[in-house]
Simulated scan of single mutants.
Amino acid sequence: MHLYTHILMLAQQWRNQIYTFLQDNLKRQQLPSQNLNYRTVARLFGMLPSAEVAKTMNVAEMQQLYYLAETIKSGNERAVQKLQQLRPDFFRSQADPLDFSGNSLSSHLDVFTSVYTNQAALLINELDLLNFERSAQTFWQQIPETLAIEQESLLALLG
């Protein structure tokens, strides 16, 4: 299996697990969990833990994994730009992360073509995958069993 596929699988598994974890916490606290999507989940995790706790949980690394997966899946311009900000070392050219061919008409990173032509559009390797796997393990080892979520904060995010 290609490295990109492993990264996509890890990101999707983590995304599903964190979504389920947060939904269970909301239900236990009798808070609304409809209209919950990944962006809301990510914003909640940006608000809930203190900066120190977020660092020990590897929240920033897991956000990098999310943007990397979105870049691989679609070459989405927003995901590419976010990933470029967080991990410029993943890109061949820091000056133009959206198009390595010199074609200024493209607004998407052509990840899929790069797989078939054996020219990596992203500079990632197995070590990066292993680091993301370790970050995911640490995240789940450090996360509290329950998260105290204020109803007002949640409603503002869902609103």
Rank of each mutant, 00 (worst) to 15 (best):
R43H: 13
Q137S: 12
E133I: 05
T40P: 05
Q137V: 05
D24Y: 11
Q85R: 14
Q137L: 08
Q81M: 09
Y66C: 10
A121P: 04
I18R: 09
E126A: 09
L105H: 15
R87C: 15
W140P: 03
A95E: 10
L157H: 02
P144K: 01
S50H: 06
L109G: 00
Y66F: 11
N131V: 02
M62N: 10
T117F: 04
N118P: 01
Y38L: 11
W140K: 01
P32H: 07
M62W: 00
D96W: 11
N37K: 08
E52W: 13
P97S: 02
T56H: 07
Q63F: 04
P144V: 05
A79N: 01
L68F: 03
W14T: 03
K55G: 03
L31H: 13
Y4P: 01
M47I: 15
L31E: 04
D89Y: 04
S104R: 14
P32M: 09
R28F: 08
M57P: 10
R43M: 14
L65C: 02
N16S: 13
E145A: 13
T20H: 03
V111N: 06
P144L: 01
T146A: 13
E77R: 10
I18A: 04
L48N: 02
Q141N: 13
H108Q: 14
Q12H: 13
T113R: 07
F100I: 15
E152Y: 01
L26T: 02
P144I: 00
E150F: 02
T20M: 11
V53I: 15
L122E: 06
D99S: 11
L154D: 04
Q63S: 09
E126H: 07
R78E: 12
S107K: 12
Q13D: 14
A79R: 02
A136I: 05
H6I: 00
E126N: 04
S93P: 05
Q141H: 14
S107Q: 14
A42D: 12
F45D: 00
Q30T: 09
H2P: 13
A136D: 14
L44V: 07
K73C: 02
L22M: 08
Q137G: 01
V41Y: 05
V115I: 06
V111Q: 02
P144Q: 11
L10G: 01
Q64T: 15
L10N: 10
S50K: 10
A51I: 11
H6R: 09
L98V: 07
Y116E: 11
S107T: 15
A51G: 11
E152N: 12
I143H: 15
M62V: 03
F90Q: 10
E77T: 06
R15F: 06
L129C: 08
E152C: 12
Y4C: 07
T56N: 14
P88M: 06
Q119I: 09
L123M: 14
P97H: 05
E126F: 06
H2L: 11
Q119N: 13
E70G: 07
Q30L: 12
G75T: 11
L31G: 08
T5S: 15
N118I: 06
P88A: 13
L36W: 02
Y19H: 03
W140Q: 08
F112C: 07
L109Q: 13
S93L: 08
F91A: 06
L98W: 07
K27V: 15
L44E: 06
R15K: 09
A42W: 12
A121E: 09
L8G: 08
G46H: 07
W14R: 07
L83H: 07
L83F: 05
G46Q: 08
Q12F: 04
I72Q: 00
S153F: 14
Y38I: 14
N35T: 07
K55L: 12
